[in-house]
């Protein structure tokens, strides 16, 4: 097994949804989607965001887009306009999600670099 970042096999976008955020995670291919169905459990995501998300975590599946949508309740310090924290709209939660580390088989194909190619 090897340790990788979620961002090496998926991409994501987040935004606000009431007092919480949503994070849509898009798998790079069907094999990754099947892996994420197992690995990216509600418990795993709740643990990853333990200092950010203080409410329930919900998960929805979109097999058509190879996507999982997470709702992180109570993660914005009161939500949108009421919050006094910097990321009051959960704009950065997608980038936070992609930094999750996971174990995959040694031959599991990585799809994306975690940044621009170094010259």
């Amino acid at each position: 097994m090897k340790e990788i970042y979620l961002g090496e096999i998926a991409h994501a976008r987040s935004g606000d949804k009431g007092d919480g955020s949503n994070v849509g995670v898009l798998a790079g291919n069907r094999e990754v989607y099947d892996l994420l169905l197992e690995e990216l459990s509600i418990e795993r995501v709740r643990e990853h965001f333990s200092e950010i998300c203080h409410g329930a975590v919900e998960r929805f599946e979109l097999p058509n887009l190879l996507a999982l949508n997470f709702l992180l309740h109570d993660s914005l310090g009161g939500g949108g306009t009421e919050s006094i924290i910097t990321d009051a709209q959960g704009k950065t939660h997608a980038q936070a999600m992609l930094q999750m580390k996971m174990q995959v088989p040694d031959d599991f194909e990585l799809l994306y670099p975690m940044g621009p190619p170094k010259s």
Binding site: H11, N22, F60, L65, N69
Partner: peptide
């Protein structure tokens, strides 16, 4: 990415 933006 835009499709899943602010999705419930």
């Amino acid at each position: 990415e835009q499709l899943v933006y602010e999705m419930g």
